[in-house]
Design a protein around this nucleic acid. Sequence first.
DNA 1: CATTGGATGTAGCGACTGCTACGTTTTCGG
DNA 2: CCGAAAACGTAGCAGTCGCTACATCCAATG
Lengths: 191, 191
Amino acid sequence: MDRRAALTEGALAYVLEHGLIGLSLRPLAAALGTSDRMLIYHFANKETLIAEVVALANRRLAESIDEADPPVRTVGDLVRYAWRVVNDPVAHGAMRLYLQMCVLSVHESDGWRSAHEQSREPWLIMLRTGLAELAIPQPRVEPLADLILDTVDGLLLDSLVTSRPARVDAAAAAFADLLDHDSADRAATHL
Amino acid sequence: MDRRAALTEGALAYVLEHGLIGLSLRPLAAALGTSDRMLIYHFANKETLIAEVVALANRRLAESIDEADPPVRTVGDLVRYAWRVVNDPVAHGAMRLYLQMCVLSVHESDGWRSAHEQSREPWLIMLRTGLAELAIPQPRVEPLADLILDTVDGLLLDSLVTSRPARVDAAAAAFADLLDHDSADRAATHL
DNA sequence: CATTGGATGTAGCGACTGCTACGTTTTCGG
DNA sequence: CCGAAAACGTAGCAGTCGCTACATCCAATG
């Protein structure tokens, strides 16, 4: 058994619950049934420990996106699906972690930026392929994918902070409807 | 002269540059030409100092929104205007602060939540009145205002993190066009 | 001039941080 | 079965944190 991998696993669970921002080795080690000394022993330093944890979280995220293959008939469905996945209470821990990475990469853009981009990439791939399958013309795919991901991020941020889910759900639904309206309109004018 | 107000002013400038997250009294005091002792003397504790700074930032934000009265002819214009205001390099400090408040209120929702809501409110008011003036039917105003604010937040987050402004600008433009398309479509069907 | 009260500097408290030196235990291949 | 290597605990380093006790200075007031 790879002790390091097991520790990474446990550390991820701890980070998902307690956040990345004030993370301290000793409470983490206590929760993992070990000592700060051992964490340093296995990971050399705090930085690579966090990098390992974040990488694991990103791997999990990519897996959870890949394995789901929902029935997507319209662009709105794409948004509705992404919103459902992201807004799952079980996923909220991962989403909080994602937001923390965003903010950390904003105010000290050392290694955080790449971690953040690795978080975004599976989503962007999913959105781009989804849009392509829906026959969205090539030049519109990229900005639309960016817009959808950013909007879902914004909705998620709102949802996590204000904890008034119904209101945010309504906004998300409005976005999905907006996209469907638009697609239908464009299709009609090209008939 | 109110020493406390002057210190709050300086602290805001410092926080806009150095962020809220690792904020420590001693470097802050040094930058302000005083000592941590004096900060505690004037503000009683770190918590109320930060509260004061955040309140000042929110006041500034509300002022900057109020004083601008742009020509807004369509819903898309509303988005374009909000995006221009938010994406101003001068405002980026305030926006970083806003995002940090978001994240801080996500992972320790003590006093942060209300501060965060106070940041959102001037924007929401601006959007709601703008939408009402554009004759958007009442039941659609609320979700649309939420959607626009959340989307702009998401775009801003992307912009601040990835620092690839052209890409995000394209997404923002796509959003504005989407809204204009939708409005025109709805208007046409109701003629 | 004496006193008072606000403003400020110094030194330090206790708690915590990431990290390390060192000694002990456990494991395992030859 | 023994010795080397890996795993682990204890104690502690040097540093920072928010915060405070105490002494000092300075201006205004009586």
